[in-house]
Simulated scan of single mutants.
Amino acid sequence: MDVEALLHSIPPLAVYLVVGAVVGVESLGVPLPGEIMLVSAALMSSHHDLAVNPVGVAVAAIIGAVIGDSIGYSIGRRFGMPLFDKLGQRFPKHFGPGHVMLAEKLFNRWGIRAVFFGRFIALLRIFAGPLAGALKMHYQRFLAANVSGAICWAGGTTALVYFAGMAAEKWLERFSWVALLIAVAVGGIAAILLRERTSRMIAELEAEHARKTGEAATDPV
């Protein structure tokens, strides 16, 4: 079975359910590739031969994001900051002290805006709900930022990828796939650079925390 036939064999409802589930579980606090799933589904919707609807993709992602974040908020409010200590011990690559400190720093700096803009930042996307609950953020304000952020992120991403995919499909009828591969490579490099910058910030926070902890331990009582 070739790729074209495989894509046609996937029911649109299955695409919407998978998008909503993956985005929802990621928003709950589990590090899953929600954004990649959204972009892939939106790209499928731009293919005129497939029955996947971009509105359905966006709505599924919005619902998943709102529900996932709300469940994550409830979990964070129930268990508080000790929850992140336990998660850090089991999943240090995603919930290590540096990750938590950076997310908490951004929350303290941006306040409720961290929930809105967190939808666009990989690190905050998995921390926003649980951390907002652990920090006892007012739920109505959290919900407003959660819903508006989900609509802008899911709707904006879907629309951007959908129209870009349609333009690329027409454009590639006249040109080669080389330009598309170059565009994908540029996007990948940008994502890697952003990830490296985040890693450096986390490393700096961990080093600063270790230095303060060491100083506190050596101070005379």
Score class of each variant (00 low, 15 high):
66 V>Q: 01
67 I>T: 12
68 G>N: 10
68 G>D: 09
69 D>T: 02
70 S>N: 14
70 S>F: 08
71 I>D: 10
72 G>T: 00
72 G>E: 04
72 G>S: 01
73 Y>Q: 14
73 Y>D: 13
73 Y>C: 04
75 I>A: 11
75 I>H: 08
75 I>C: 12
76 G>D: 03
76 G>R: 12
76 G>T: 01
76 G>Y: 00
77 R>D: 13
77 R>P: 01
80 G>H: 09
80 G>Q: 08
81 M>S: 04
82 P>V: 03
82 P>S: 04
82 P>R: 07
83 L>S: 09
83 L>G: 12
84 F>S: 03
84 F>P: 02
84 F>V: 05
85 D>R: 15
86 K>C: 04
86 K>W: 01
87 L>I: 11
89 Q>C: 13
90 R>P: 13
91 F>L: 12
92 P>W: 13
92 P>V: 14
92 P>Q: 04
93 K>E: 08
93 K>V: 02
93 K>M: 10
94 H>P: 06
95 F>W: 07
95 F>V: 07
95 F>S: 06
96 G>D: 00
96 G>L: 04
96 G>S: 02
96 G>V: 07
97 P>N: 15
97 P>H: 13
97 P>K: 10
98 G>F: 14
98 G>L: 14
99 H>E: 02
100 V>N: 12
100 V>Y: 07
100 V>A: 07
101 M>S: 15
101 M>L: 15
101 M>G: 10
102 L>T: 09
102 L>N: 06
104 E>R: 15
105 K>T: 05
106 L>K: 15
107 F>R: 09
107 F>C: 07
109 R>W: 13
109 R>I: 00
109 R>S: 06
110 W>L: 11
110 W>T: 05
111 G>K: 08
112 I>K: 07
112 I>M: 05
113 R>H: 15
113 R>V: 04
114 A>V: 12
114 A>P: 13
114 A>K: 15
115 V>S: 13
116 F>I: 00
117 F>I: 10
117 F>Q: 04
118 G>A: 10
118 G>Q: 10
118 G>K: 13
118 G>Y: 11
118 G>P: 06
118 G>S: 10
118 G>F: 03
119 R>Y: 02
121 I>W: 00
121 I>M: 04
123 L>F: 10
124 L>Q: 06
124 L>A: 00
124 L>Y: 08
124 L>F: 09
